[in-house]
Simulated assay, not measured.
Amino acid sequence: MELSNRVEKIRKMLFKDSNFKLALKNLFCPKRNNHIILEPHMGLGDALINLGLIKTLARRYSHCSFYYACLPIYYHSVAWMLQDIDNVFPLVVSSGREARQYTQFKNAQYLSIGVTNVDIKKFDLSFYDQHQVPFHYRWELSDTPAGSRSEDLLRQLNPKNQKFILICRKDSSGQLHNLNLASTSNLLTIEVTPITNNIFDWVHLVLGALEIHTIDTAFIHFVENTLHADTRQKLFFHRIRQSPTEFTRRLPWQEIKY
């Protein structure tokens, strides 16, 4: 045990030393103009909104490699949505500050998305305007393949293939909200829960639901990415969370105020 501890201590020292040497080397090297760290707001909803923007930047600067900062809890979802973009990679960090430190460490370029100068009444539009990307790309380029567990999750949660409604009442902090729902006694109710670490595993359930009820959380942006504008599904946006921010919705949501 003592020997293994010593080996681990030496390993960490060598790692720190190599990091120090690289940081020192970068002080005397030019910026790596073809490596760009993207720092967005760190919510999963923000990442879903940004997908069309990310794809556009990747095409516009195809000679560059982009590293999109995300929190560990959202890594699998972000990695899944970026999988078909050859020059964009998820960068797991604990905060925006860590993303900026990583930028300096790698001697890379830095771009923020909505970190400053955002109109909170249309923050999603601000993200795109900051980088001169047409806002309609927010939906036109949002297509993402269903997650690897999407069909299995549908069978697991609806084994009898019943008609169902989908309800998302939990926010990113884990708080559950009591929603005003009309009588749905004749329909199976499926709750959106953290049963999977990839939000795209819910694609088939979103596509198959007769009704979708959601609060202001990442799930509403996921539904916006998944359904077409001419959908006939009944969509209900429960505005139970008090927030000064506002975002654009393309789908025909019925708003339920509290």
Rank of each mutant, 00 (worst) to 15 (best):
L3A: 11
N5P: 12
K12Y: 06
K12L: 05
M13G: 06
M13R: 03
M13H: 02
F15W: 10
K16Y: 10
K16C: 01
K16L: 11
D17T: 13
S18A: 03
N19W: 13
K21F: 00
K21V: 02
L22M: 09
A23I: 04
L27H: 08
F28S: 12
N33T: 10
N33Y: 15
I36V: 14
L38Q: 08
P40Y: 00
P40R: 08
G45K: 07
D46E: 03
A47H: 08
L57V: 11
R59Q: 08
R60V: 01
S65C: 04
Y67S: 11
A69H: 14
A69R: 02
A69D: 03
P72Q: 05
Y75W: 04
H76L: 04
V78Y: 02
W80D: 04
M81P: 02
Q83V: 02
I85A: 06
D86A: 12
D86R: 09
D86I: 12
V88G: 12
V88M: 07
F89M: 12
P90A: 05
S95A: 13
S95N: 10
E98W: 14
A99K: 02
A99G: 07
T103P: 05
Q109W: 07
Y110V: 08
T116R: 00
N117Q: 06
N117M: 01
V118L: 03
I120H: 10
I120L: 09
K121C: 06
D129Y: 08
D129W: 03
D129I: 01
Q130C: 04
Q132T: 06
V133Y: 02
F135L: 04
F135M: 04
F135I: 07
F135Q: 00
Y137L: 13
Y137G: 02
L141S: 11
D143G: 13
P145C: 09
A146N: 04
A146W: 05
E151I: 15
L154R: 11
Q156K: 05
Q156P: 11
Q156T: 09
L157N: 10
K160F: 10
K160G: 15
L166Y: 09
I167Y: 06
R169D: 06
R169P: 00
K170F: 08
S173Q: 13
S173N: 09
G174K: 14
H177F: 08
N180S: 08
L181A: 02
S183P: 07
S185C: 15
T189D: 06
E191Y: 01
T193Q: 11
T196E: 08
N197S: 15
N198D: 14
I199E: 13
W202S: 08
V203S: 06
V203Y: 07
V206N: 04
L207W: 09
L207Q: 14
L210K: 14
E211L: 09
T214V: 05
I215C: 02
F219L: 00
I220K: 00
H221T: 01
H221Q: 02
N225I: 12
T226F: 05
L227P: 03
A229W: 10
A229E: 15
Q233G: 05
L235R: 01
F237I: 02
H238E: 11
R241V: 12
S243M: 12
S243T: 13
E246Y: 07
T248I: 11
W253C: 10
I256E: 05
K257L: 12
K257H: 11
Y258T: 15
Y258E: 15
